[in-house]
Design a protein around this nucleic acid. Sequence first.
DNA 1: TCCCTTATCGTCGACATGACGATAAACCGG
DNA 2: CCGGTTTATCGTCATGTCGACGATAAGGGA
Lengths: 249, 249
Amino acid sequence: MRSRSVPAAVAASPGLPVDVVPIALSVDLVLLTVRDDQLCVLLVRRGIEPFRGRWALPGGFVRPQEDLAEAAVRELAEETGVRRRPAHLEQLATYGAPARDPRGRVVTVAFLALAPLSQAPVAGTDAAASRWAPVAGAGDPPGLAFDHQAILGDGLERARAKFEYSAVATAFCEPEFTVAELRRIYELVWGGRLDPRNFHRKVTGTAGFLVPTGRFTTRDGGRPAELYRRGDAGVLHPAMLRPTARPNP
Amino acid sequence: MRSRSVPAAVAASPGLPVDVVPIALSVDLVLLTVRDDQLCVLLVRRGIEPFRGRWALPGGFVRPQEDLAEAAVRELAEETGVRRRPAHLEQLATYGAPARDPRGRVVTVAFLALAPLSQAPVAGTDAAASRWAPVAGAGDPPGLAFDHQAILGDGLERARAKFEYSAVATAFCEPEFTVAELRRIYELVWGGRLDPRNFHRKVTGTAGFLVPTGRFTTRDGGRPAELYRRGDAGVLHPAMLRPTARPNP
DNA sequence: TCCCTTATCGTCGACATGACGATAAACCGG
DNA sequence: CCGGTTTATCGTCATGTCGACGATAAGGGA
C-alpha cells in the first residue's frame, strides 16, 4: 500500500523515502487595512494562467531555504512594494484540497496581516496590478481566484474574533491615535456601532491596552481628544465581546 | 532573482513554473486523551532514521490526492490502529523551518485531536511502538523527535485556550458523563482545582452545553449524579476563564 | 445508625457591562 | 462675542456573572 511507483527522480530529497511525493508549497496573505473609513484587503490581479485577469490574494511559492513567515513578507514586498513588516502577522491556516489549483498539487499556508495604511501604500512591481478592495464585495461577480474567497472569509473571521480578546486592533492605527479612532476600527471590523462612552471606559480601564501620551488633538473635530500609543498588553482580561455575538436574548 | 537554475526534472507539476521547488509535506497529530486520571498524548517510537528510537508525534507524508485532514486520520489509523475518527479534530498550525528535518525540506501540518480513551485504545501496526504518555514529562530526557516538542506545546496551549470558550471538553468524555467527570477533565487540562459548586452552576446554566438524560449513576461514589450528553453548543457565552489566567491581582 | 463522600442548591459581595444622563472643550456661523 | 454643534470624557444605575463558601440531599460502608 505504501510505495506506488513514483519515479525516484521526483523524490523530494535524497534522504527521504522514495515514495514521498513532492508538493508545491505557497504562501498567501490576507493583508487588511483601514482606508477611507472602510476595511480593505489587498488584492493583486493575476498576470498568468490560471485565473488570468482575476483578482487574488498576494502570495507565491516558498523557496528552498525560506521559513514560511519569511516567504510571506518577501512575497508581500515583491508583489506590492510593501517593504515594511506589517504591524501584525500571524499564520491563519493551511489549505490543501487536492484540486484547489488546476495546475497540480499546490498547498498554501495562509497568513493574516494587519497594517495601518501608511505602512502599506501599495505600489506593485511584480503583479499586473494591485489594489485595496473593500472587504464588503471583494472580488464581487467572478469571485477571487482559487479558494481565496474562502481564505479571505477565514481571515476576516479570525480578525473579528481576535479583536475580542486581544489588542491587535491597534495594529491598524498610526503610532499615536485617539480612542475614537480605535473605536472606529472596531466598528468597521465588527460592523455596527459601539457606544463611545462604554468603549472609552473599557479600553482606558484595561491595563496595558493604551498608554496615554499627555498630548491632545482636535483632528476629529469637537473637544480635543487625548492621544495614546499601543500598550504592551497582548490579551484582554476580560474580553470585549462584540454586540452581535449575543445568542441569549 | 526568480529563477535559480532548479532542474526542470524536479518541478512539482508540468503546469507550474519550472522554478517552483517541490517540498515534502507531512501531517503530524497531537492526539490527547484522559487516562488514569492524567492528560496523555499519543506518541510513537521512530523505527527509522533520523531520530531512530526516539518518541515522536504520529504522522506521515501526505499522498498526492489526499486532503490534509484525511491524511491525518489515515496516519492515525496506520500508525496506531485508531480507526475511528477522533471526537474532535482541528488544524493546529504548519511548521516549516528550513532545517526542521535533517533529511531535507519537510513542512508539516499539525493537527490537534481529542478523543475519549475508549475511542483510541492504541494498538500500533506500523510504528515500532506507540504509547500514551502523560503530557507532564512527555519525551523527558531526550525530548521528542524533530520539533515535535514545540508542536506538542502549541497543541496543549490551544486545547487549554479552547476549553475556555468552547465545549470541546466533552470530546474527552464518554457519550454519557457526569458533571464531576467533566470537571475533572477541565482540572487535568488546566492544572489546578475548580470549585465543584461554581463549575456545576456554570456548565448546567449555559444553554446547549449539556443535555440531561434524567438517569443517574453512583460510579463516582457519594450521592448519585445525573448523567448528561454533549449539547450542540459550539461556543460558550460568556467564556469560562481558567483561574490562572488572572493577570490583575 | 453514624459517618464519609459526593451532588446540588443558595447566598452574598465584588465587579463588569449596557443604557444613558451630564459636563467639558473645541469649532463655526452669525 | 455668543449660542449652537460636535466630540470627549466622566458618572449613575440596574442587571448579570463570578468567586467564595454555607447548607442540604442522597448514596455507601463500618
